[in-house]
Amino acid sequence: MLLLEQVLNGLQLGVMLFLLAAGLTLVLGIMNLVNLAHGSLYMVGAFIAASAAQWTDSFLLGLLIALPATALVGIAVEIIALRQLYDRDHLDQVLATFGLILFFNEAVAMIWGPRALFIDPPSWLSGAVEILPGAPYPAFRLAILAVGLAVAGFLYWLVARTRLGMLIRAGASNREMVGALGVDIKRLYTLVFGLGAMLAALAGVMAGPIYAVEAGMGEQILIPAFVVVVIGGIGSIRGALVGAILVGTADTLGRAFLPGIFGAIMGPAAASGVGAALASMAIYILMAAVLVWRPRGLFPAHG
């Protein structure tokens, strides 16, 4: 029972990571831009949703306002700041987008104050569902899973079947060529960035009822999201999905069970230290193992 619950928790974390990693991998794969500020869009989405939900007294309306609003914030950031960075090297991009993190954290603290906010899940999702007899599981977390899988399906359709998706895939494979064919890359970039910002906001809104909405929440999830991108292969949506599920379950199961497993072998005192340390390293060990096996990630989009 505990195992099933933890697996579901892992999948749910994986789905959240996927929403972030999908935007991150597209931006990195197509625009060759390392965007540390992606987590800030996740945070901005959560804050806008918290305010809008309070104001309208409805979680769903908060969500519906936060998505386009964050997409607009993302588009503004792309046009004002990131366009200057595409031709720079990755170190410049890291420095500049780190600056954006500081800017957004400060801006959020100025607008919303230093206290953490909470978003109430809609009342019809606040209960628990019995997934197996005697094993209740929060309905909201199940809803996150469903939404995440639906978004994965939508992105798959978008990327694999539509004209826009063809351009995105072509752009990830050979940027210069796409431009030479007459595609306005700037507009494509802005569009893709807005899409990524919207996905990050979706993750942020869904994180609201589970974690606290506070300045700096983006950085905590940004690092595992980058691990997902590296494991999945840069530029690949499919890789982001598989990588996110792997990272989400490895992290959750590691934290839940590794201390116990080591406790059985080494005795509780030594084990709690080793187990906890290993658990927090689990996703990096996973990443190292995947990279040894496939140096360009599971589904590399280039070449």
């Binding site: 079947r161 539509t162 004209r163 826009l164 796409v178 064919l181 007459g182």
Partner: peptide, 18 residues
């Protein structure tokens, strides 16, 4: 087809099945 698409007018048929 990608090359044709780039020149096929406004390009706002983004969602169409390619």
């Amino acid at each position: 087809a990608l090359a044709v698409q780039a020149h096929a007018g406004s390009g706002f048929g983004f969602w169409a099945d390619a």
